[in-house]
Design a protein around this nucleic acid. Structure first.
Lengths: 239, 239
DNA sequence: GTCCGACCGCTTGTATACTAGTATCCACGC
DNA sequence: GCGTGGATACTAGTATACAAGCGGTCGGAC
């Protein structure tokens, strides 16, 4: 998560908020990606390079760097000489992202179940308690951060730190869906319970159970697609 | 594979070889990536943005776009105000790439074994025969193309076309190793035989056998790491 | 009223100019 | 001879200027 920046709304350049010397490209990428997956930038919305640069207080060059990476992630669609647009949700892209996420996380969690030590399990447990507190407060933003950390911890426990960045980029489309799913009242408690099931299996060093419960958990979001599509038909690709 | 361009050597601008209107960034990315994984650009070698632009007949802007993507792939290391260098081979990055490749391809091949039809199997068979011919001719370049196509076909048969691009970017480090492994005399026949074993399992609609044989095949390259490191110690990260 | 066409504005892609910071190398002092 | 300091030549990051192409709009002809 990065410092939220008012891409729409505020007119004053926001340059001051960013540390002066750090390259702007990666920062802008993270900021724009965050706004897209949080659906603060709506699917189909136009993104003007010049306007973004003006609002954020930078020139088009670092903006283009960020948009290029977002294009690689298929989160924006760049049509030369026409414009850049927030990608609409593509059921095929969602399905592909689900496949990649399942493959990476389920393989990782098997290794995690074999390798997890006491300290790692204590950290998972602490995260789970925080998730429960966030659920009681119905604090969706905090919970999403904790959810991200939880899944990342499972990945990192496999001993392959490069897996998470790949997974993160691939699963953007799923996060976007999740954001739209969160209106369901009992969504959060269900998710937290599923997390605990996975963590228990990892703690028992039971790879099969860990993989199975994680796979089941990951597929929950996917089942929401038809309902979301019904609620927000304009967010989806026209077939 | 892209049209090879003489990044070193030729002094004349090479712009004419590229179709005039297509954006140059993706083209340059593919070209540079190809040269790096083929070890034509040696690990540790300096890549000057200005010099590359001059040799290839474009300005620094598209060069920087290509280098940015290569940095995301960890194929180049950009040190601000110092320079851009071809990344040395990192055993950790290789291990991570192996994990990602195994997870994606082995999961995909299970689906492929379930979904493959007669036509797909015929295409695989045709590819295998071409591999055998390339092996007889000891035509390494052709075989590498066919190998790429073979693995891509297995991925695509899963019905998730977005998986291959992710896999391709992740496995760059492994391809680079493979290139250095090819001096082994019986390397090619062994690989082709392994491919046939995998294809047979897919044809029998046997996901377990397909996954197991593919996993074994993918790990073959990894076993070459110590030998390659002994032969080219300067290509590896200093620990 | 309707349709066709030229023009204008805006878009992305590319090239170039400028900024700030690093390493190297050479001259100078000791 | 050796160590040190500064000028210099490079680097990547950023800003700006230019080129090329698409789309919408407005005006005129039928």
């Amino acid at each position: 998560m990065v410092e939220p920046i008012p891409i729409r709304g505020g007119d004053a350049p926001e340059k001051a908020r960013r540390p002066g010397r750090a390259p702007a490209g990666p920062y802008l990428y993270a900021a724009l990606r965050d706004q897209i997956v949080r659906a603060e930038l709506a699917p189909g919305e136009r993104l003007s390079e010049a306007e973004l640069g003006e609002r954020l207080g930078v020139s088009r060059t670092p903006i283009r760097e960020a948009l290029g990476r977002l294009r690689d992630d298929r989160l924006v669609e760049v049509r030369p000489q026409i414009g850049t647009f927030v990608a609409r949700i593509s059921p095929a892209a969602v399905s592909d992202a689900q496949f990649i996420r399942e493959a990476l996380e389920c393989t990782a969690v098997r290794l995690a179940a074999e390798l997890a030590d006491e300290e790692s399990m204590a950290q998972l447990e602490e995260n789970l308690r925080a998730q429960e507190r966030a659920t009681e407060r119905i604090d969706i933003d905090s919970w999403q951060l904790l959810d991200d950390t939880f899944h990342r911890s499972l990945c990192d426990l496999s001993g392959h730190p490069a897996v998470w960045p790949v997974n993160e980029r691939a699963k953007s489309h799923l996060i976007r869906l999740r954001r739209l799913s969160l209106s369901m009242p009992d969504y959060l408690p269900t998710m937290v319970a599923a997390h605990r099931t996975v963590a228990d299996a990892v703690g028992r060093h039971d790879p099969d159970a860990a993989e199975a419960s994680l796979r089941e958990h990951l597929r929950a979001v996917l089942r929401e697609v038809p309902r979301i599509r019904e609620q927000h038909p304009d967010y989806f690709e026209e077939p």
